[in-house]
């Protein structure tokens, strides 16, 4: 499958998207394409430019250079037409402290216009699913419940595209699961998602592609299964005789090789396992273990120094 696709399939396209504040460069020439039906995981440490990208896509910020298109419209000049088709969850969502959950739902269902009654029904169903009480004023809600209400408000109008900035912050594991199920249902119905996070573990369950942003640059975009193919394995072996480092010179993908007398350990991507095992089996093996590392670690190994 090609990464670009035709325009009909593209829901987000940025070209040379750049945002600077004085001399500070928040985002530098980001080219990003998200296709219909995709769940795009947007990863990076805090302050890398994730929120800046998202707020540029929502038309809250004006690009310094380049441009962004969302659902075929320019995000800055033509965002109004498409905003009703996008569900947005801000990174640190604020609510109207004095309004109840139900009043929030009512207000935004009218502002979104398309189907106010349907929005309210969907919101009520989602609130039940997330175990959220809509009758309480926002100021009395816990952080987790505020996050739930913000999620309900983003999803209630059944938008084509979800733009979610760190959506699972403050949610307990059960609610996270429920939320991920809701995201999957959204994509099963043909919807697309842009989901940001600073931890891979959070997006790997739902994302189909992953982009990594670091210091304002998009440094890598990978399909999740490609990344899985590169997933690191920790290999350790106890051998009956001496083993030398030079034996593994023909296997360049190995990392962190440690050899002492009869023991051997290293990290190896999945693709290098075959060669490694064949090389090790030239020695009599006393003990052997191979465990898959967290995807997080794989990730850091590949992208830490880019």
């Amino acid at each position: 499958m090609s990464a670009s696709g035709t325009d009909a399939e593209v829901v987000v396209r940025t070209v040379g998207l750049t945002k600077t504040y004085g001399r500070t460069i928040a985002l530098r020439e980001v080219d990003l394409t998200i296709n219909a039906g995709e769940v795009f995981g947007y990863l990076g440490p805090n302050g890398a430019g994730k929120t800046t990208t998202i707020r540029l896509l929502m038309g809250m910020l004006r690009p310094t250079a380049g441009h962004a298109e969302v659902l075929g419209h320019d995000a800055w000049t033509g965002g109004l037409e498409v905003r009703g088709r996008i569900g947005y969850l801000a990174g640190e969502p604020a609510l109207y402290e004095r309004l109840t959950g139900r009043q929030h739902v009512e207000y935004f269902s009218w502002l979104r216009r398309r189907d106010p009654a349907g929005d309210r029904d969907r919101a009520a169903a989602m609130a039940k699913r997330l175990d959220l009480d809509l009758s309480r004023p926002a100021r009395t809600l816990s952080k987790g419940n505020k996050q739930k209400l913000s999620i309900v408000l983003a999803l209630m109008s059944a938008p084509e595209l979800l733009i979610l900035d760190e959506p699972t912050t403050g949610l307990d594991p059960f609610v996270q699961q429920e939320f991920h199920a809701m995201v999957r249902e959204h994509t099963a119905g043909g919807g697309s998602v842009l989901l940001s996070s600073h931890v891979l573990a959070e997006v790997q369950r739902v994302a189909t592609r992953i982009g990594v942003v670091r210091a304002g640059r998009l440094i890598a975009v990978e399909r999740l299964d490609t990344l899985r193919g590169r997933s690191l394995h920790h290999v350790t072996a106890q051998l009956a005789d001496q083993v030398g480092a030079e034996e593994f010179a023909g296997l360049p993908d190995l990392r962190d090789i440690e050899i002492s007398d009869h023991s051997f350990s290293c990290s190896a991507p999945q693709s290098a396992l075959d060669g490694l095992v064949k090389q090790l089996s030239r020695h009599p093996i006393v003990d052997f273990s191979c465990t898959e590392a967290e995807l997080e670690e794989t990730f850091l190994a590949y992208y830490a120094d880019r």
């Binding site: 929502m58 038309g59 809250m60 109004l80 009703g84 801000a90 604020a94 109207y96 502002l111 983003a154």
Partner: peptide
């Protein structure tokens, strides 16, 4: 100031 402008402008109101 109360950070609710993102929430409001995410709707189709100019």
């Amino acid at each position: 100031d109360r950070h609710t402008l993102d929430l409001l402008l995410a709707n189709p109101v100019g």
